[in-house]
Nucleic acid binder design. Structure first.
Length: 421
RNA sequence: GUGGGCGUAGCUCAGCUGGUAGAGCACCCGGUUGUGGUCCGGGUUGUCGCGGGUUCGACCCCCGUCGCUCACCCCA
């Protein structure tokens, strides 16, 4: 036997029947964005490496140790996208999309790549849905973005999750806080590795899961206490409006995000039944990113939702349900002569929007009935030579077992099958 | 990059202190010359992850290796 293959380590794959859940999650997340006027932006999965080092931040873990980077044949350094915002901003700037009416509202869905050690809910190729609203600095827009994410989760029937928000402040707020935080951390007795991390981004220590660190950080200065008047009122406005929309949230002053570009409003959705990788989505405002990437000085806000993790959350909450659209009609041809007639009829019904199938191959009637049952067919029609000659067929309703005679013609079958739909 | 757990049929797993494999599900056929879901009968599928060692004999013990998995780190 020839050597067989395995998928590369850590990729998420979806095949029937679970692929239906993936599709449902993706569509459910996209719908609220469409309803709010966001439009599709379809981008390459690889970009100039520098786009990410500059956009995401070259001290972040994502950039320093998680990127799939390679040289293409022209000697350019290329990286498989680890996140979506940098690429979206690149496209916005490159094509001048921010020159039209603002805010510019776009969404994307697709695979992303991070060279991490795989774990429950963490993959090397994973799927995200994200939106970006560019060019308008308005707390109401922050709230719209959060609401879209929340609507998507709710429409799936999920409820065992928490929306955590905070404000990372503007440049001025952060500078002051950082100064004090660094002083505070300097007084702690930390191991080398942790010190190293703290020097890159002192906020990181707030997120450390080790008991020794989290208790040491208990009295650390919080960014929220350093907000400028503007940043503070902006954050309060966001909270007010979330309440107006009846979106529940908790303020999480210690929340840290792994990408450097976030400022002011920042949020994360955490699911409670997922194990260690509980973040199912997150985002925030990015004030300096457009300019950093060579564009106009425009603010933006967006989020990314993890489709893989949300699918896991649906399974954990058992809201996956039955998402398979069963067949409307399964036609069974008993002879070669009837088969071509049946295929023609089914072809016509499909064009009329009826979900239908026929028995391929040559198994017996009993087997074909079994197949119809397993495919979830609502109606079954059996056609042998007798039927072909008589020009009628018995259509059986599977749930009741009742049969009724129907003329063997497109229009009659169509009404028989759609009557009770 | 660091640590723990696990690799037996397509899937989920059993296999006692070593005597070379089993169940359920799934799939196929039959019980009904042309009617499903239930029931009954029958059947197909394994280099027991791979390589080596110990032994008369290894799925079981030892070593190595590969893979999967969970957790740290980090994040969707």
């Amino acid at each position: 036997m020839a050597k067989s293959f395995q998928a590369p380590k850590g990729v998420s794959e979806y095949y029937p029947p679970r692929s239906a859940l993936f599709e449902k999650v993706r569509n459910s997340l996209v719908r609220p964005a469409r309803l709010a006027g966001y439009q599709l932006i379809e981008l390459p999965v690889f970009e100039d490496t520098e786009l990410f080092t500059r956009g995401v931040g070259d001290s972040t873990d994502v950039v320093t140790k998680e990127m799939y980077t390679f040289e293409d044949r022209g000697g350019r350094s290329i990286t498989l996208r680890p996140e979506g915002t940098a690429g979206a901003m690149r496209a916005v700037i490159e094509h001048g999309l921010d020159r039209g009416q603002l805010p510019l509202k776009v969404f994307y869905v697709g695979p992303f790549f991070r060279a991490e050690r795989p774990q429950a809910g963490r993959f090397r190729q994973f799927y995200q849905f994200g939106i970006e609203a560019i060019g308008v600095d308005d707390a109401a827009l922050d709230v719209e973005v959060i609401a879209i994410a929340d609507s998507g989760l709710k429409s799936l029937g999920l409820s065992d999750y928490t929306l955590k928000i905070t404000s990372l402040g503007d440049r001025e707020s952060r500078a002051k806080h950082r100064e004090d935080l660094v002083k505070f951390i300097a007084k702690l007795n930390l191991d080398e590795e942790t010190k190293e991390r703290a020097s890159k981004n002192p906020l990181r220590l707030f997120d450390d899961k080790r008991e020794s660190i989290s208790s040491a950080m208990k009295d650390a200065p919080l960014l929220l206490d350093y907000l400028t008047i503007e940043a503070k009122s902006n954050f309060e406005s966001v909270q007010e409006q979330l309440k107006t929309l009846r979106i529940k949230f908790v303020i999480e002053p210690r929340m840290v995000r792994g990408l450097d570009y976030y400022t002011r409003t920042t949020f994360e959705f955490e699911h409670h039944a997922l194990g260690a990788q509980s973040g199912i989505g997150g985002g925030g405002r990015y004030d300096g990113l457009m300019k950093e990437l060579g564009g106009a000085e425009l603010s933006g806000i967006g989020f990314a939702m993890g489709i893989d993790r949300i699918a896991l959350a649906c399974e954990a909450e058992k809201v996956a349900g039955s998402f398979d659209d069963g067949l409307d009609l399964y036609m069974i041809a008993l002879s070669p002569e009837s088969k071509s007639a049946v295929l023609a009829l089914v072809h016509g019904l499909r064009e009329a929007g009826v979900c239908s199938d026929i028995n391929f191959g040559d198994r017996g009637l009993k087997g074909a009935m079994k197949a119809a049952d397993r495919l979830g067919a609502r109606y079954v029609a059996v056609i042998g030579d007798d039927e072909l000659n008589a020009g009628t067929v018995k259509v059986k309703e599977m749930s009741t077992g009742q049969e009724s005679a129907v003329r063997l013609a497109h229009s009659d079958l169509l009404t028989a099958v759609t009557a009770r739909k």
